[in-house]
Design a protein around this nucleic acid. Structure first.
Length: 246
RNA sequence: CAGUUGUCGUUC
DNA sequence: GAACGACAACTG
């Protein structure tokens, strides 16, 4: 029990310290979906109430899907305020990931209907932010507010990807969440990109600019059970016109 | 559930 | 070199 209490104290260590210094609307912000080849970037900001029971709460990546759903409900039910914002692939392509990400985090903060008096951030700080803030390495592992935000962002994004899976079933979005697995890349080689793919990302850019090279690199990662009978490596290369390499 | 390894993406 | 975002496959 001592170790449990110690772990709990550690996760909201910053919140407690800040509260002792007089802050009582401490927001955590985090985003999900950064490295994905498809789907939106999702950011969430959360202000937890003082004394929010934090035992078992962790970075969304360290929770099982069931645990994430449970925390998602609990955070939404008890938060002083929370917000979720997203940026879609087309805009990421147009503005770049980093710029999109900064704007998104800022939007999530300003979308809070309770104005924070302090902001805890994951990794980097926001240029020109008007709130007092602290950016910390591995923020979602170390502080409750950021962990909570990471859960809201992650669960929201996963649900969006589930919806995209119904619309574009060929890519396995329900499984890979838009990330670049072998099967996902092979699906792109077979079917082409969907409207929710980030065309500015490596791989998709390659697909658009040089399909033959893309197919040679990723097209062979055919999912089990979908192997095209009789197509060997050589024939694939021939059919995609890649016979004339170095 | 607890870990480990691998792979990929973006940015600095 | 670092940070952030992930999935996949393996051990116990």
């Amino acid at each position: 029990m001592a170790s449990l209490a110690a772990a709990a104290r550690k996760l909201d260590h910053y919140e407690r310290r800040l509260h002792a210094e007089g802050f009582d609307r401490i927001a955590g912000v985090d985003e999900a979906g950064r490295g994905a080849l498809a789907g939106p970037l999702v950011a969430a900001a959360v202000i937890l109430p003082e004394g929010f029971g934090v035992e078992g709460l962790r970075d969304s990546k360290l929770l099982t899907p069931l645990q994430r759903d449970r925390w998602f409900d609990r955070i939404r039910a008890t938060a002083v305020a929370y917000s979720v914002c997203r940026v879609f692939p087309r805009r990421i392509d147009a503005r770049g990931l980093h710029v999109s990400n900064l704007a998104l985090l800022r939007r999530a903060l300003y979308a809070l209907d309770v104005v924070p008096d302090f902001v805890l951030m994951d990794g980097f700080s926001l240029p020109g932010m008007r709130f007092p803030h602290l950016a910390m390495r591995k923020g979602d592992v170390v502080t409750a507010s950021v962990a909570a935000a990471s859960v809201i962002a992650k669960v929201t994004r996963d649900r969006i990807m589930d919806r995209y899976h119904r619309r574009f079933p060929e890519y396995g979005f329900d499984h890979n969440r838009g990330y670049g697995t072998d099967a996902h890349r092979a699906a792109i080689a077979r079917c082409g990109p969907s409207p929710v793919h980030r065309m500015s990302f490596k791989g998709l850019k390659l697909y658009a600019q040089d399909f033959d090279t893309y197919a040679a690199l990723y097209g062979e990662a055919i999912p089990a059970g979908e192997t095209v009978a009789g197509i060997t490596d050589d024939e694939t290369r021939t059919s995609t016109g890649k016979g004339d390499g170095s």
